[in-house]
């Protein structure tokens, strides 16, 4: 019995040691830029469920969109020709914890710069000016935010600031929060809500995918998108701001905006830049 206990104690100690060895230094607090230069890789959190910005292409298994192209171009600016952009999928729901935990270095995922978020994160300058709007089925009686009454349900996405905005703009309406945009759009198609609310760019992507749904009500908020970084990553923040300026100056930025948003009816690309 004695031997047995010793053996068991040994096994337990090894398990604990194994568990503890996983706890290295806190990855979130290291200098992300220095680490990226060391590995020639910048780890980006991107959307995979948002047409035009970041959408999984089932054919190639790769994510495509404006945010993705921006991430790749910015990486080349910051790290040089050898620099690689590693893409990790996030949703509105998961992007903040992943950034805080150091799972990703930067998030470029239709993320609005807001005062609340700036308390816990750092943002670069804005790279895209969106505004919140509504997506409804063609022929819906909802034409604007004013039509959202107590009898209507609005679908939003967890972790997006559009759910907070809609609660202010239409306090009587019920807000249903789904976990990502694919689920939210599916819920709208399943008549779980009367309208889906988020930023116009994302909504135009949905209506491009399924023309039975249209964007209505104009923009009722201003949503400047920024690249989000963990608090205190000043070196990376400065490098990305410099890279953004360069991309705007050398025409790359305009080319990418035109590539993704140039031929979308009802979308004014002058407003976003």
């Amino acid at each position: 019995m004695q031997k047995w206990k010793k053996w068991l104690a040994l096994a337990a100690t090894m398990l604990v040691a194994l568990a503890l060895s996983g706890c290295g230094q806190n990855a979130a607090s290291r200098d992300a830029l220095a680490h990226a230069k060391q590995t020639d890789t910048l780890v980006w959190g991107v959307k995979a469920d948002t047409r035009l910005f970041g959408l999984m292409n089932i054919k190639t298994g790769k994510i495509e969109g404006f945010d993705i192209d921006m991430a790749k171009a910015l990486t080349k600016q910051v790290l040089g020709k050898k620099g690689k952009a590693q893409l990790v999928q996030v949703t509105s729901d998961t992007r903040v914890p992943m950034l805080k935990g150091g799972n990703v270095d930067a998030v470029i995922a239709t993320m609005t710069i807001t005062p609340e978020r700036e308390k816990v994160l750092d943002f670069t300058d804005s790279y895209f000016n969106a505004g919140q709007s509504l997506l409804v089925a063609k022929g819906s009686k909802i034409k604007s935010v004013k039509d959202l009454t107590a009898d209507t349900k609005v679908i939003g996405v967890q972790g997006s600031n559009s759910v907070d905005n809609i609660k202010k703009a239409a306090p009587q309406t019920t807000v249903l929060q789904l976990s990502d945009y694919a689920q939210a759009f599916t819920a709208l198609k399943s008549h779980q809500g009367d309208a889906l609310t988020t930023d116009n760019g994302i909504l135009y992507g949905m209506s491009q995918q399924d023309s039975n749904y249209v964007v209505v009500g104009g923009m009722f908020t201003k949503e400047p998108y920024g690249i989000a970084l963990n608090k205190g990553q000043t070196a990376l923040q400065q490098a990305l701001n410099k890279a953004l300026k360069t991309l705007r100056a050398n025409g790359t930025y305009e080319k990418l905006v035109n590539k993704w948003f140039g031929d979308i009816p009802g979308f004014d690309i002058k407003e976003v830049e």
């Binding site: 509105s92 729901d93 903040v96 914890p97 967890q158 972790g159 907070d164 929060q177 789904l178 819920a187």
Partner: peptide, 18 residues
């Protein structure tokens, strides 16, 4: 499925308080 249960509320609180 936005069923207002404990986990749903937890996710929303986690998102608003970070």
């Amino acid at each position: 499925v936005a069923g207002f249960d404990l986990m749903y509320q937890g996710k929303i609180i986690a998102n608003s308080t970070f």
